[in-house]
Design a protein around this nucleic acid. Structure first.
Length: 932
RNA sequence: GGGCGGAUAGCUCAGCGGAAGAGCAUUGCUUUUACACGGCAGUGGUCGCAGGUUCGAACCCUGCUCCGCCUACCA
């Protein structure tokens, strides 16, 4: 055997690279749309080409790969679609930042074409880096199909969808209040704005009422917008102002006269009960202005600077500076009332961090009401299900309150809106660039400068990746997808929109299940962030990284010196010892095992180390197997096992039965997306059953000497069962940890008919017919007795070398027969020699352990027993028994329980009471024998 | 303001109507030829609080207290 090939500690570095290449070369990742197998498709949420993969990607993709590898092994036609997203605004932000810091330029200095060239170069680098990382993590994506949201096929799909929606009247262009990002100089959607409460002030402005000596006081958090005020509003029922409604105020600083109006949206209890109305720069005010036909005066421009209709003194000031100036000027004029500190909800652009300015602008919109209805119905009827189910509510809530979707962006990196403007005012929307205006026939037409919201192409992704609008074989085979796995943060951005577009264009839901992953945080529950210095990079976990490397990278990554300092402090605190290389398998196993239905996964290097240890345990169990499989005839053994021709030991029968159970458990768990249950079931099986018990017990047979040239029959069976169980276990583990399992599997002697790779073996399913209940029951007794003896040995510090004689008192003939039959197993694993008795005499100076109501272990330890310690231990046991007895007796004494509870429950409780009473008696005897 | 979650062993979390579980940490013992990234054996919990439903509640219902996350036009 090739024992020399296996090192004591598993080293993932060369193993992973080797199998990765082999799988790719063999084409195992590819799925054929023409395959007769049942399709199972997943579309990878395309990562943004903004950089590299983070832990959130690693989690989501690991879960997807587990499903894909599992289904592929279970003979489904499993297809996993890779791709990347152009991430319009995110890439803009990134490149524009770089431009600003490195060259001191804006994108406008550079120009559209040059900027696009840079963006393409960036996407090339980032896209390649991402796919390399995905390969390193072992993700079995169908690379032949790799796509990009801005490739030619996707562009075509986008134009087709836009044109159709336009023809159907579901796209319109209108001047609306929108959120404006004055740094990126583009509209952003409501979803791209984070509202945070920031400390600010509430200023009271005193507006004189025309023709009276009265003053109406309005409260505002944004005094500078008073330059664009066109009314003052009060509540219609507000007694204080009723007589003023219909009159005018004269605005300070501008001298403009504006009306006092009554509108029910005003809350009389807030501030003074009077509100200044700035229709061009506030959502509420704008709606109010529409109700009252007020003029709209824009005083803030696209760069966030005060502009023309404002008095010349303010033009060109930033909003903040203008605010200070206005307050000073108002005060000078005696128009300022009280100033109070106030928490101001302030919208900030998610990407640029700029304070978002509500502005009135012409934009393109998708009408969502009609599109949302089928998307709501599909979830209500269960055509698409959310897992965990609680997300259904989030989706429904959004969908039923959906607003029209603003799809235009004043950016360059993205799909250009397929609309051409003409001097005649007509807008021509077309799939291909038109040569003439569709209205007047004139040729002086120009394409709309705007690009589409990134999420427009993403919304089409589940079918645009399959060739839509062409009617491809891929489309008919792989649409709808089986499942979508993504983070809950993009339910609105993406999931909802794919549902709408999928149902609209394909007539079917895009996926049957939406599985929402947890969010990965650091071990304290904080979001991982470069500037905090708590980011665990998946590649660092796989390949390892020294503290020096982490520090160096942080230094180059963060240009702001202040942020760099906090980031470095974080890195040093969190990764003081660096990150050991733990391999992709360990990381994947960790992510699967920690993925509960909770909302967060607190990840730490320590956690991964725990599962790295598990991988190492598996490695060493395999190493042990390979060291002891000389002469093993896999082919012959398998056929004899199938034919039931083998004489199996209790341990053999038990582990084979347990294998069936764990296979069934894993199957059920994966079926229900309970990845943690699957991972934990395997962890427990490998470590605490296969390693702790089966391997230990099998040593007695595996260490038997070869009888001449041939191994002894007992040894052959032990070899066969070990090899068999290990081989099936590797298959079960493969979807979670593909590399180490493939590596071991390749080395394991196995029947010739098996394929060339573990990846394409058949996934084991638990077979109930192969369960051996009797073996499991007997083994449980063996384990209890062995553990009981070890406990006594440990308590009394019996040297490991001393094979203690013990008396085992058994309650009945059946138990006696079982214990007797498996005597060797117990004696071996507990290093003890047993005498079986029916009970009886006290043995002076002995320690005793009671095994339920079936047996007692008496260990004679003349002179060794610490009477006080033994008494304390037994007292503890007695207290437990007494407590149980009290609860059970009370229950059984309750006539209503006996009458109303199901018969089997009552019977069970009676049995337990009897058991506890026997146990108690034995414990009391033990105490009496101690002579205390 | 509205909505949704969470509160279970020192930590992180499973369990979600019929005997309190795991991993890590911790305490002994242990370098025995698969593994010290190991082995063996322990310690550790009136399941946030208060009511209710039930023969029976960590689990279902109500209220409360903390803690998260979405979401919203109190200027």
């Amino acid at each position: 055997m090739t024992t020399a090939a296996l090192s004591k500690q598993y080293d993932p570095s060369d193993v992973e690279a080797r199998h990765l290449r082999a799988w790719l070369d063999a084409g195992y990742y590819h799925a054929d749309a023409a395959s007769p197998s049942v399709p199972y498709a997943i579309t990878l949420p395309p990562p943004n080409v903004t950089g590299s993969l983070h832990m959130g990607h690693a989690l989501g993709s690991t879960l997807q790969d587990i499903l894909i590898r599992w289904r592929r092994m279970a003979s489904w036609n499993a297809m996993w679609m890779p791709g990347t997203d152009h991430a319009s605004i995110a890439v803009h932000h990134l490149l524009e930042n770089e431009l600003k810091h490195r060259e001191g330029k804006t994108r406008f200095d550079l120009g559209r074409d040059a900027f696009m060239a840079r963006a393409w170069a960036w996407r090339e680098r980032s896209g390649n880096r991402i796919s390399e990382q995905e390969k390193v993590l072992g993700f079995s994506l169908d690379w032949e199909r790799e796509r990009f949201t801005m490739d030619e096929v996707s562009n075509q799909a986008v134009r087709e969808a836009f044109v159709r929606l336009n023809e159907e009247g579901l796209i319109y262009r209108a001047k609306r209040m929108i959120n404006w990002d004055p740094v990126s100089e583009t509209v952003v959607s409501d979803l791209e704005v984070d509202t945070v409460e920031e400390a600010g002030h509430l200023w009271e402005l005193r507006y004189p009422v025309v023709g009276t000596d009265r003053v109406i006081v309005v409260a505002t958090t944004r005094p500078e917008t008073m330059l664009g005020d066109t009314a003052v509003a009060v509540h219609p029922d507000d007694e204080r102002y009723r007589d003023l409604v219909g009159q005018e105020v004269e605005l300070p600083l501008t001298g403009r006269r504006v009306p006092i109006i009554a509108d029910a949206f005003v809350d009389p209890a807030f501030g003074s009960g009077a509100v200044k109305i700035t229709p061009a720069h506030d959502f509420n005010d704008h709606e109010c202005s529409l109700r009252h036909g007020l003029p709209i005066i824009t005083v803030i421009d696209a760069k966030g600077l005060m502009c023309d209709p404002a008095p010349a003194a303010y033009v060109g000031l930033t909003v903040e500076r203008c605010r200070t100036q206005i307050v000073a000027d108002l005060e000078a004029g005696g128009h300022l009332g009280e100033i109070k500190p106030h928490k101001v909800p302030r919208g900030r652009s998610q990407r640029s961090g700029a304070v978002v300015e509500p502005m009135l602008m012409e934009q393109w919109f998708v009408k969502t009401e009609q599109l949302a209805a089928p998307a709501i119905a599909a979830v209500e009827s269960g055509k698409t299900k959310f897992v965990p189910e609680l997300w259904t509510k989030t989706y429904m809530h959004w969908m039923t309150n959906i607003k029209d979707w603003c799809i235009s962006r004043q950016l360059w990196w993205g799909q250009r809106i397929p609309a051409w403007h003409c001097g005649c005012g007509h807008v021509t929307v077309a799939r291909a660039e038109p040569t003439a205006c569709g209205g007047c026939g004139g040729t002086a037409i120009t394409q709309d400068p705007d690009v589409l919201d990134t999420w427009f192409s993403s919304a089409l992704w589940p079918f645009s990746t399959l060739g839509w609008p062409s009617k491809s074989r891929d489309l008919s085979t792989f649409y709808p997808n089986a499942v979508l796995i993504t983070g809950p943060d993009i339910i609105f951005f993406w999931v909802a929109r794919m549902m709408m577009m999928g149902l609209h264009f394909m007539g079917k839901v895009p996926f049957r299940t939406v599985y929402l992953t947890s969010i990965v945080t650091d071990e304290d529950g904080h979001k991982m962030s470069k500037t905090v210095g708590n980011v665990i990079d998946p590649l660092d976990v796989i390949h390892g990284a020294s503290l020096e490397q982490l520090v160096a990278r942080t230094e180059t990554d963060i240009s702001d010196p202040k942020k760099r300092a906090t980031a470095l402090a974080g890195v040093k605190k969190n990764f003081g010892k660096g990150i050991p290389a733990m391999g992709a398998d360990a990381l994947r196993f960790t992510l699967a095992a920690l993925n509960t239905s909770g909302r967060y996964i607190r990840l730490s290097v320590d956690r991964v180390e725990g599962y790295r240890n598990f991988i190492n345990k598996l490695w060493n169990a395999s190493r042990f197997a390979l060291m002891n499989l000389d002469g093993h005839d896999a082919e012959g053994f398998e056929s004899q096992l199938d034919a039931g021709q083998l004489t199996l030991t209790l341990a053999d029968r038990w582990i084979l039965s347990r294998l069936q159970r764990v296979a069934a458990e894993v199957d059920t768990a994966l079926e229900g997306f309970r990845f943690n249950d699957a991972a934990n079931a395997l962890y427990h099986f490998v470590w605490h059953e296969l390693c702790d018990w089966y391997i230990e017990l099998s040593k007695a047979h595996l260490y038997l000497p070869n009888d001449g040239s041939a191994p002894s029959p007992q040894r052959r069976v032990a070899q066969g069962v070990l090899a068999h169980v290990l081989e099936r276990t590797l298959r079960l583990l493969h979807p979670i940890s593909p590399f180490v399992t493939e590596e071991i599997w390749q080395k394991l002697p196995k029947p010739a008919h098996l394929p060339a790779s573990l990846m394409i073996t058949i996934y084991p399913r638990g077979d109930e017919r192969l369960l051996d209940v009797e073996a499991e029951r007997d083994m449980a007794l063996v384990q209890e007795l062995a553990v009981g003896v070890r406990m006594l040995r440990s308590t009394y510090s019996v040297p490991p070398s001393w094979s203690v004689p013990v008396e085992v008192r058994v309650a009945d003939a059946a138990t006696r027969a079982t214990v007797d039959r498996y005597r060797a197993l117990i004696e071996n694993s507990a290093r003890v020699t047993m005498t079986l008795t029916a009970g009886g005499e006290a043995v002076a100076g002995s320690a005793k352990e009671v095994i339920r109501d079936v047996a007692e272990i008496v260990m004679p330890l003349a002179g060794l027993v610490d009477v006080d310690a033994e008494k304390a231990r037994i007292d503890r046991e007695l207290a437990k028994a007494d407590k149980e007895i009290a609860i059970l007796s009370k229950k059984l004494a309750n006539p209503q329980f006996v009458e109303r509870a199901p018969e089997e429950v009552v019977a069970e409780q009676r049995a337990r009471l009897a058991e506890e009473e026997t146990r108690k008696q034995r414990l009391r005897d033990a105490l009496a024998q101690l002579g205390v």
